[in-house]
Simulated assay, not measured.
Amino acid sequence: MANHSFSNPNMKIKTIAFDADDTLWHNEGLFREAETEFCQLLEAYMPQHSVAKELYRIELQNMELYGYGIKAFVLSLIESAIEISGRTLNVTDIEQILRIGKELLQKPVILIDEVEDVLSTLQGKYRLILATKGDLLDQQRKLKKSGLEKYFHHIEIMSEKKEPDYEKVIRHLDIQADEFAMIGNSLKSDVLPVLNLGGHAFHIPYHITWEHEKVDRKIEHNQLIQLTDIKELLQHL
């Protein structure tokens, strides 16, 4: 992947947008733990790896209807369990699934190392915004728990992160696409749409990637910078 510096004087970034989950704080690992517990719960009906595949199929099927986030995840858990059990699931099992979801909603927010140092360094030099997707209430809860809200000029919780969604954000901010940079862990959601619009992107891989966010091709672009961690961002801005 490209690894260029923003020392180019022609670059005029004014606004930096940060993804939230797995960019500012840990998230995907919590979903994996919940999914493992769910698969164990249904092991009597189907091997755990098969339960996981069926769950992913139903999540994809429901995405347009439910969107993203924990509540959408729990609805897909319940639907998967009903199908996997051949509609023999008992009330106790449904209660267990609801418990998994409620516990997920109450997990502490654990920041990724160096995040607050980076935000405090960049604040005042650029307009910082949060641009994340997911359930509105849940993302607001996590942001409040994180203690990071004070660093952001604007909060954008999106139902999707595709080109039209970023176009709306850029238009709302009253800037040009080449004045906008996005920082995130997902090539699919944080990088490709922004590059396609003419913006800049910094990709910081997270050690776990949700299957839906994977991109199975190499991306080369002169406005993409690949980082190993968020602290490295300061070397380019």
Rank of each mutant, 00 (worst) to 15 (best):
S186C: 11
A2W: 01
R127Y: 00
Y68P: 15
P47G: 15
Y166F: 10
T121Q: 11
L148R: 10
L30W: 14
G86P: 12
F152C: 05
C39P: 05
D135H: 14
R127S: 04
Q139D: 06
Q96K: 14
K14S: 02
E33K: 09
K133F: 06
R87E: 12
L187A: 01
E160Y: 11
Y126D: 01
G147M: 13
G67L: 07
L111P: 10
P205T: 07
H212N: 09
Q96G: 14
V191S: 01
G67P: 07
A2F: 03
E28F: 10
R99L: 11
D165T: 11
D178E: 06
E179W: 07
Q235V: 00
E213W: 03
K188I: 13
K14I: 06
S7I: 00
H154A: 14
Y56Q: 06
Q226M: 13
H49F: 08
M63T: 13
M158R: 05
M1C: 06
D165H: 12
K144P: 02
A81P: 15
I208K: 04
S7W: 00
D229N: 02
P164H: 01
F18N: 03
L60G: 05
I230H: 00
D135V: 07
L173Q: 15
A72N: 15
E43N: 11
I204R: 00
D19N: 05
K102N: 07
L55R: 08
E43P: 06
Q139R: 10
L119I: 07
A52H: 14
D138W: 05
D21S: 14
N196R: 07
G101N: 07
A131K: 06
Y151V: 12
M1V: 05
L143P: 08
L77C: 11
Q139E: 09
L137M: 09
H203N: 05
D93K: 13
Y66F: 13
H172G: 12
D113G: 04
L65Y: 12
N196T: 12
W210R: 04
P193K: 08
A131P: 00
D113R: 09
L89N: 07
A81Q: 09
